Computed example of a mutant assay.
Amino acid sequence: MGTGGGLLGLLILIGDIWAIINILQSRSEMGMKLLWVLLVVFLPLLGLIIWFFAGPRGSRA
């Protein structure tokens, strides 16, 4: 009767959406943005972790 799996899935979904928004706002080339978005979409948890440590960041200037 626990909802731990559903809650974890929701948190991963929120993190993925946040990552995709940041990827699209970055100053990287469109091809690199596309590759990062595909990584996050097809490997939600692993892609999010890899993006967090090595991915492009959005421009906050």
Rank of each mutant, 00 (worst) to 15 (best):
G5V: 09
G5S: 11
G6S: 07
G6L: 09
G6M: 09
L8G: 06
L8T: 13
L8I: 11
G9S: 13
L10C: 00
I12Y: 02
L13N: 09
L13W: 04
I14S: 08
I14M: 12
D16K: 14
D16H: 06
I17G: 05
W18K: 15
W18F: 13
W18A: 10
I20G: 03
N22Q: 10
I23G: 01
Q25M: 14
Q25R: 12
Q25H: 07
S26D: 00
S28H: 05
S28V: 01
E29M: 08
M30C: 00
M30Y: 10
M32Q: 13
K33L: 00
L34S: 10
L34E: 12
L35R: 14
W36T: 02
W36N: 00
W36E: 02
L38R: 04
L38G: 05
L38C: 10
L39F: 06
L39C: 06
V40S: 02
V40E: 02
V40Q: 01
F42S: 12
F42G: 08
L43F: 15
P44F: 03
L46G: 03
L48N: 10
I49Y: 08
I49S: 04
I50N: 04
F52H: 10
F52Y: 15
F52S: 03
G55M: 05
G55N: 04
R57M: 07
R57Y: 03
R60F: 15
R60M: 10
